[in-house]
């Protein structure tokens, strides 16, 4: 689901790196394996990549729950891992070989909230989140903490389950409580349904909806239509981000694959280049420890998502961007 765009972007990056000969005689060989979003299969793959294919670096896994199971193996074997779509808290705490280019929700959301506070008069909030989804539960806790930190009173917290399509019960309660802002811990499809049904139930434009990073998808607009307008999310990247590097990336990607990349593709593309850059600095490929140290030393790397450095805890330091849904796409919020 989230994996294909990352695979595409990484393969494109590897071809570019090899063609440009930025690593001299070192050629990068990518091995892609599909884990079927299954924990046991992900662990199988990590073991095989490390012990049989003897890879220097692993880019992945696509889902945080898989990383929690598989990353300890790479950590124990001393193989650096860079994830580009894990946004749950605690991934890089697994060990000093685990990195990510996907900023977690706790880096992104405070910016979104601060923007909303500046623009609107926010005093009371409601939260609505997926209780059985690892990522969304994690997002909910981060949202809650950020709201408390901003002194915004949370009137009520409502929940739903994965696969739910009818949110009218929760939204009716939220409408009755009368919050200024509704914070969603929901994936794209659920967010779209919630936005659509909220407007149907007569929750007006004076109520602002804030969402999680994982809600970013073109699917949101297909399902919600104009009801998505005004929905605010935080992201490291958006397709129209006007840096020359990003424009070149998006153009090349569209040319090669026929559609625009998504945010996880962009983060995966940068992860591949960060590895290449680290290998270039080390100058050889037989020392995983040196490669790890070089990755950890990444400072102000210019990627398609902008400048990226790794913090002491191997989290990405990027400039979070606040995006607003407007007319069928996410645009920088003004």
């Amino acid at each position: 689901m989230y994996g294909i765009e990352q695979k595409n972007a990484i393969e494109m990056a590897i071809d570019e790196i090899n063609e440009s000969r930025m690593l001299g005689d070192i050629r990068v060989v990518g091995i892609h394996m599909d884990d079927g979003a299954d924990k046991a299969q992900t662990v199988n793959i990590f073991q095989r990549l490390i012990n049989q294919d003897k890879v220097q670096v692993i880019l992945g896994a696509s889902l945080a729950t898989l990383s929690f199971a598989a990353d300890p193996i790479a950590q124990a074997a001393g193989v650096p891992v860079i994830a580009s779509s894990n946004t749950a808290a605690g991934i890089t705490d697994i060990g000093n070989y685990i990195f990510r280019t996907s900023p977690p929700e706790n880096i992104l959301f405070p910016g979104v909230l601060a923007y909303a506070e500046r623009k609107y008069n926010i005093k009371k909030a409601a939260q609505l989140y997926g209780i059985d989804d690892q990522l969304m539960k994690s997002a909910y806790l981060i949202h809650k903490e950020a709201l408390a930190g901003a002194g915004i009173e949370v009137l009520l917290s409502e929940t739903f389950n994965r696969g739910d399509v009818d949110f009218s019960a929760q939204l009716t309660k939220i409408k009755a409580a009368g919050p200024d802002v509704v914070v969603l811990g929901a994936l794209a499809e659920e967010s779209a349904n919630i936005l659509y049904q909220a407007r149907q139930l007569g929750i007006g434009d004076n109520v602002v909806f804030l969402g999680a990073n994982a809600a970013i998808s073109t699917k949101l607009f297909e399902l919600a239509g104009p009801a998505a307008n005004g929905f605010l999310v935080g992201a490291s990247w958006y397709a129209e981000y006007p840096s020359p590097k990003n424009q070149a990336f998006v153009a090349a990607y569209v040319k090669r694959y026929g559609h625009k990349p998504d945010v996880f593709g962009a983060q995966a593309y940068d992860a591949a280049y960060i590895v290449a850059e680290a290998v270039r600095r080390v100058g050889r490929t037989d020392d995983r420890k040196a490669i790890r140290d070089a990755i950890a030393a990444t400072r102000d790397f210019t990627g398609v998502i902008g400048k990226l450095s790794f913090s002491a805890t191997r989290e990405p330091i990027v400039t979070p961007k606040v995006l607003e849904a407007r007319g069928g796409s996410f645009v920088p919020a003004e």
Binding site: A40, V43, N44
Partner: peptide, 14 residues
């Protein structure tokens, strides 16, 4: 040993 390490989890899962 490498082979065993590469497929260790597979054997465990079986």
């Amino acid at each position: 040993n490498d082979l065993l390490a590469a497929y260790g989890n597979l054997i465990d899962m079986i």
